[in-house]
């Protein structure tokens, strides 16, 4: 446990050092943004869409009892922006990207490819960790925005065309009640979640042990740790951001 914390701290310092003085290349980061960001879009959008749909439907069923139909979309939009968009998108990315990072780096570790890198004038943090952490941290806020947009659009479509909510009032309420602050909350969360997922995946992969089984464990650990981490961090961020934004 103590050794683990020391390793985490060490890797964190290395990443910071690498950002400032390492020999990383923009092209590596761009390649990772494609791998991580662009290729996660479909998964994240489907998640956003169905979350928006079900949230709108459920909210409508309850609100309809009190005749508050036109507030349905406002609830959907606020919830999507500040909580559900970032959290669910991040959970999906943790499963897709975090796990893949741990598996890839873990395999490289156990097959001595990391050692080979180190003999080829390349620091593993510069070449493997930093591009992944940077790319995920950059891509995650964008993915959050996509999830939110699709979720709101889905909710609007279902509400107006499926459930027959009045579009004009709904729209006005939605725009009135959703503040820039809500969207900012989501984006800032996405930024932190991206860092958390990629750092966990890289850490677990780099310090992976015991061959194929170890790689499996690193992958599982990454998903579990980053998922729980996302939920806990989300709670903290909600409290903090509500104070400062």
């Amino acid at each position: 446990m103590l050794l683990g914390l020391k390793q985490v701290w060490g890797l964190l310092l290395e990443v910071v050092y690498a950002v400032l003085h390492g020999s990383w290349k923009v092209s590596d980061i761009v390649a990772q943004i494609y791998q991580i960001g662009v290729r996660s879009q479909s998964v994240v959008m489907v998640t956003g869409a169905f979350t928006g749909l079900v949230l709108t439907a459920q909210t409508y069923f309850q609100f309809h009892k009190f005749g508050m139909d036109t507030l349905t979309l406002a609830v959907n939009s606020v919830a999507m922006c500040s909580e559900l968009g970032p959290v669910l998108a991040a959970l999906m990315v943790a499963g897709r990207v975090g796990a893949a990072m741990a598996a890839e780096l873990g395999t490289m570790r156990v097959s001595e490819q990391i050692d080979a890198l180190r003999t080829l004038n390349t620091h593993p943090v510069d070449y493997l960790v930093l591009p992944r952490v940077a790319a995920t941290t950059i891509a995650m806020p964008v993915l959050v925005c996509e999830a939110v947009a699709v979720g709101i659009f889905g909710g609007y479509t279902l509400g107006v065309y499926g459930l027959g909510i009045d579009p004009i009032y709904s729209w006005a309420n939605m725009v009135n009640m959703t503040h820039v602050k809500d969207l900012m909350t989501g984006i800032i969360k996405g930024f932190f979640f991206g860092g958390l997922i990629s750092f966990t995946g890289c850490y677990k992969g780099l310090f992976c042990k015991n061959g194929a089984q170890g790689v499996g464990e690193a992958t599982t650990d990454t998903v579990v740790i980053s998922s729980i981490g996302i939920l806990m961090l989300n709670f903290c961020l909600t409290l903090i951001l509500s104070k400062i934004l």
Partner: peptide
């Protein structure tokens, strides 16, 4: 290590 090279037992190709 810039001046060194290692050929690994298991090749360790990327």
């Amino acid at each position: 290590r810039r001046d060194m090279a290692v050929m690994f037992q298991g090749a360790a190709l990327f």
